[in-house]
């Protein structure tokens, strides 16, 4: 039992190592290109789940946080050409601030109202970006990648960065889940009033969850400009992020950090395959159907199904 954190650290390092090995293999560039998207969804789904799965606040505004991270990066690239680690950190911090803001919304808004407010937030933010010419306005903006990545091609490099970010996100989620914070969040998810009356500082925990979730969503969005090299509001604020962010944890299972990872890897990979082999609309259709099927038939997700099978 004592070795638990050490073992987790080893597993994390192993994943990063494996990522670097994969990057060094120089297989078909498309693998890295698609792999980046899947990993980006691992971060997004994990981040969403900290608020949605652990605390029970359904965020429909994922695109707002993701795009805010991306546009913070665009702004910094435009103004200072800051290096990637700075972009990631700054994108995360700005989104974390937005997260703190919606955290205060939870004071007055619960359940459906909170979700609708986050959706509204996403649209308002998108309108502001559309009307902000410095970062490209509605037409969008080309971003030039810095010359000479530390190793490999730039896409390979970004892929490796995403591996690292995924490990960080999952580690944070796992830590929260197993600590007193996670138990407090679970209590307030079950019954906020009772949790407060049992000594749980519900507001502080909610603010913590929205801030951390916002930070990780911003982190996922920050490398996006360099990945696509052309940023425009419709792609950065894509509703697909909102759907995937909640579909992936729902499919995997929301009560454990493993759930979003399983959901993101399965659904993310399936989408990448579907985009190539069928059409991008078809792949979204599949997401919708799978999501509805899961919430109706297997509300505990794949993890719940596995548990039920083991239990019998």
């Amino acid at each position: 039992m004592m070795a638990r954190p050490a073992r987790a650290l080893l597993v994390g390092l192993a994943v990063v190592g494996a990522g670097i090995v994969v990057a060094a293999l120089r297989v078909n560039q498309y693998v890295y290109f698609a792999g980046y998207v899947v990993l980006q969804y691992v971060v997004i789904a994990t981040a969403w789940n900290i608020l949605g799965g652990y605390a029970g606040y359904v965020n429909f505004g994922t695109p707002a946080f993701f795009a805010l991270g991306a546009y913070t990066a665009v702004f910094l690239i435009q103004s200072t050409r800051a290096p990637l680690p700075v972009l990631i950190l700054a994108g995360g911090l700005v989104s974390a601030l937005l997260g703190l803001g919606i955290g205060y919304l939870t004071l007055r808004l619960r359940g459906v109202f909170f979700s609708i407010a986050t959706l509204a937030l996403s649209i308002v933010l998108q309108t502001m970006i559309i009307n902000w010419e410095y970062v490209g306005g509605s037409r969008g903006l080309s971003v030039i990648r810095p010359s000479g990545p530390p190793f490999g091609s730039y896409v390979t490099f970004l892929f490796t960065v995403m591996v690292l970010l995924s490990v960080v996100a999952v580690t944070v989620a796992r830590f929260i889940e197993r600590s007193w914070i996670g138990r407090g969040l679970a209590a307030l998810r079950d019954n906020e009033e009772a949790a407060e009356c049992m000594g749980v500082p519900t507001l502080r925990l909610k603010l913590f969850a929205t801030t951390v979730s916002g930070f990780l969503l911003g982190v996922a969005g920050a490398p996006f400009p360099y990945y696509v090299t052309f940023v425009e509001p419709n792609s950065a604020f894509n509703l697909d992020y909102a759907v995937n962010a909640l579909a992936m944890p729902m499919i995997g299972g929301t009560t454990s950090w493993v759930g979003p990872v399983i959901g993101a890897v399965l659904l993310g990979t399936a989408q990448q395959l579907a985009t190539v082999t069928i059409s991008s609309e078809m792949n979204l259709f599949i997401v919708g159907v799978v999501l509805v099927a899961f919430v109706v038939l297997a509300p505990e997700g794949i993890l719940g199904l596995v548990r039920r099978l083991r239990g019998r």
Partner: peptide
């Protein structure tokens, strides 16, 4: 509350 919301979100998307 939670899953019903997700359900309708999925229906919207479909």
């Amino acid at each position: 509350s939670l899953r019903g919301l997700v359900f309708f979100f999925g229906v919207l998307f479909i």
